[in-house]
Design a protein around this nucleic acid. Sequence first.
DNA 1: AAGAATTTTTAGGATAGACTAAAAAATATC
DNA 2: GATATTTTTTAGTCTATCCTAAAAATTCTT
Lengths: 217, 217
Amino acid sequence: MTPNKEDFLKAIYELGGQNQVVTNKDLVRTLSISAASVTEMNTRLLKEELITHLPYQGVMLTEKGLRIANQLIRKHRIWEVFLSEKLGYEWNEVHSDADLLEHASSDLLIERLNIFLGEPTFDPHGGVIPNKDGSTPEIHSTPLTDCSQGAHFKIKEVDDQEEFLEYLLYKKVHLGKEYTLVDIEPYDGPLTLKATTGEETIIGHKAAFKILVELTE
Amino acid sequence: MTPNKEDFLKAIYELGGQNQVVTNKDLVRTLSISAASVTEMNTRLLKEELITHLPYQGVMLTEKGLRIANQLIRKHRIWEVFLSEKLGYEWNEVHSDADLLEHASSDLLIERLNIFLGEPTFDPHGGVIPNKDGSTPEIHSTPLTDCSQGAHFKIKEVDDQEEFLEYLLYKKVHLGKEYTLVDIEPYDGPLTLKATTGEETIIGHKAAFKILVELTE
DNA sequence: AAGAATTTTTAGGATAGACTAAAAAATATC
DNA sequence: GATATTTTTTAGTCTATCCTAAAAATTCTT
């Protein structure tokens, strides 16, 4: 298992390859490599039975492939916790260093680091940390766009892309913060949130979709 | 700069390439690669002006090459401190994980980690941590084999090969411990040490050469 | 100092990973 | 349903890194 193959499996997972077929095109965009390279890598991973392939439709993870993807995500997120909690990284800074470290971490190291960090359940943007065996704990949060007007909710998880996290930092949206959904416009229109502290925030539909919440009382 | 090139420079440094010419043969043995691969890598590093090359004699580090080697050693040793102090690794366990991590560490990460660790000066086996700019602080310890009978000394640094560290663990030799050199036999014979606690330890000449000490009072 | 042994270099390949360009297949449009 | 567009695959290259085998250079032995 090379870093490249690991990243490829992770990308398939992040594009939903656990439940649905992921197209070459999506992988081209996500990994910024040529379509030919995607086909080539598919061939390799297919031979190792890490993915299944429906020609001209796309790929899905096998159980084996899913396990490896989840173990990599486990490493990534444990490092994110370390960078954030121990080294003082902002949540929008952790991603790139964690991406490097995840490929250079023995299982022993990760288990010791995990204990050092107090066996955290979530990473700095609320992503759940997969178990050691590659399984994932069940999570019960919903996209903010699924809430209806008047709902009370708490921020549980946000998409971990650097620019998006920067945007949230600017909007003062952070994990655990509670809001009321004052207004939600139809046709994928903007949402108006009111924090318990009183201040109101307006965000677009696309951004709201990247925010997972849990309804409160 | 790829991990391979970094490792190659580090190997040259560790074989003394700062002060003397290092032969291909030594590099073959140290890196466990073929002689042909050594020649090839020499050519690449030569082109980048990281080493100088005397045909059929060997290579030495240029100032640029030395800087890179030292920065890599800095990363390695800072990680060793982390593994040892924060994750509870024994001093013979730190090496291989640090070897992986050193190539996956951004400069920012190392500087933050360094501060988190309280800016340590030495790694777990007493090796001095090079400065950020690739220079090395002066150190004043001598091989145990250079001491004369009756000398009082303190253990300052030991070679960081896994089996050797295991051996020292078994012999109960650790950093900072103080001894008297009770006896040293000629013709590279064994040395007899007496700890301040009273127990006596006998070690061979080769092992003693890998132990650096500082004379006390 | 000549022959033997060792070390280094050269030559020729292999593999992983990436690319571009062109062909083939699938999908969308009129 | 024929044509146009898009996506995927194939074919041919490239680079970094490794290898083995053989040639060249150096060092050791007697």
